[in-house]
Design a protein around this nucleic acid. Sequence first.
DNA 1: GCCTGATTGGTTGTGCACAATTTAATTGTG
DNA 2: CACAATTAAATTGTGCACAACCAATCAGGC
Lengths: 164, 164
Amino acid sequence: MTPTSTSAPATDTAAPGGENWLRLDRQICFSLHAASRAFNGVYRVVLKDLGLTYPQYLVMLVLWEEGELPVKKLGEHLRLDSGTLSPLLKRLEAAGLVVRERSARDERSVVVRPTRQGAELRERAEQVPRRIVAATDLDVEEIRDLRDRLDVLTRALDAAAEES
Amino acid sequence: MTPTSTSAPATDTAAPGGENWLRLDRQICFSLHAASRAFNGVYRVVLKDLGLTYPQYLVMLVLWEEGELPVKKLGEHLRLDSGTLSPLLKRLEAAGLVVRERSARDERSVVVRPTRQGAELRERAEQVPRRIVAATDLDVEEIRDLRDRLDVLTRALDAAAEES
DNA sequence: GCCTGATTGGTTGTGCACAATTTAATTGTG
DNA sequence: CACAATTAAATTGTGCACAACCAATCAGGC
């Protein structure tokens, strides 16, 4: 939809000195793909002591903040669906970090809540952010800026994927 | 480390003087995670016509550029190991887009090469970058800048993960 | 020739992401 | 009340990412 100005030369990909769209694009998707996996790798190392994976850590962050909430709400916070969350939550339950129980008010709903053990894990997790920030080798301002750019990008991409 | 107050669930993690590391960190990892999946979603839509997934598209980009190369080299370009590439390449081979054959010079090496059909797919793929760039709603300069920042970040993260 | 060690792909197992389908419970409407 | 539509999770199937392990091959020495 966005009538992004056609100022960009609609050249084929063989522009001699100008924009090589194929090349540029390759750089973007490579870069984002690589950054995502590199982040995942650092979290893997840092979280190993806690016995959590990266997505499991994200789930626990939400639960530490919100206390307790149904799977549906959890999925909205994380933008994940039940197909991803159900097995993940079962693993967290098997590890003794959360409990899942059907709501008495609405029997369709399953409420997830950290156990005492899961809540205690929070204290050990509080050293994680500092180590991650250190690993990025960026200062707080740069991180904030990068985060904001990524959020803007995500909103644009979601909107573009929607209207297809 | 906060005192062992197991009672209060919503312990305030804000440092009096400044940074709330936990909150900030959550924003970063949320944002990057979300951006990565949002990108994936857009590629899913755009690549559906070509019958390619996002990582398969990355592989084909390299092959279109390099012509033919062993799995090892392909993995270095993409930073992926054989556990990821082997089944992916088998799917591309089953789709008739690449062939895999053992090198005669070194029987340990498997060389991957696009078929005629795979090479022809390139022409249809050349519209992809433009659509992706449009979906980001960013101009070329901003994309280039973001890419560079992500590359710097990736190098820092890889280095940090290494020395653990 | 025969060993030893390193290199290259492949295989297996665990976990995440997402689409499509299924099951059960709730709500709306006659 | 009965019954269709809606909603919430779970399940199923495909594909990616990566660690750990295995098999075949090559290169060096003897």
